[in-house]
């Protein structure tokens, strides 16, 4: 039986133009919609309104550490005090907190029980508050975060008169 010979050529030329068009469109879309996102993190604060009023003290409770941040006229940091004692800066605040709570940060430790109350001037730049929270919350050692105090609260805001 005679075999039917194919009339098709050996190599079929596929038109790549539409595919390349679409692929370049895709690349352009991704390039233009690209937004470089910087990594962000949170400081978790639990501050119920009821706790602002005097809660019943118990034997386990450690008196809160009061950190006062005062602002200069331009909103920059003028002074820091911890329980009324003036400090040189955030590094000293961190050292004082370390000296107070020690290195034990496990469950039921002093670091877990201690609470820091921030009293900030209204006009103080918020970046200073975050620096102060960083100083009391922990430190980075060998690339790992060692947590210190997690219980943080703020005094009610005091809006300056006028």
């Amino acid at each position: 039986m005679p075999r039917r010979q194919s009339s098709l050529p050996d190599k079929i030329a596929i038109d790549m133009t539409p595919m390349i068009d679409v692929v370049f469109q895709l690349i352009s879309f991704f390039m233009f919609s690209l937004k470089v996102v910087s990594p962000e993190g949170d400081f978790d604060i639990r501050m119920p309104l009821a706790a602002a009023a005097a809660a019943a003290p118990d034997d386990q409770q450690v008196p809160p550490v009061r950190v006062k941040l005062s602002a200069a006229a331009d909103g920059s940091l003028a002074s820091i005090t911890m329980n009324g004692n003036p400090l040189a800066g955030f590094d000293e605040l961190h050292q004082q907190i370390m000296a107070l709570v020690g290195t034990d940060t496990g469950p039921n430790s002093l670091a877990e029980k201690t609470e820091v109350e921030f009293d900030c001037d209204y006009s103080l730049k918020y970046a200073n508050v975050v620096q102060a929270i960083t100083a009391v919350s922990g430190r980075v050692r060998d690339g790992q975060i060692v947590e210190l105090i997690r219980r943080i609260k703020f005094t009610p805001p005091k809006k300056p008169a006028g």
Binding site: S123, L124, Y126, V129, F154, P157, K159
Partner: peptide, 13 residues
Amino acid sequence: GRAQAGEVQDIIR
């Protein structure tokens, strides 16, 4: 970071 700390506290309140 340049906002006033008091405004953040206002929001929290």
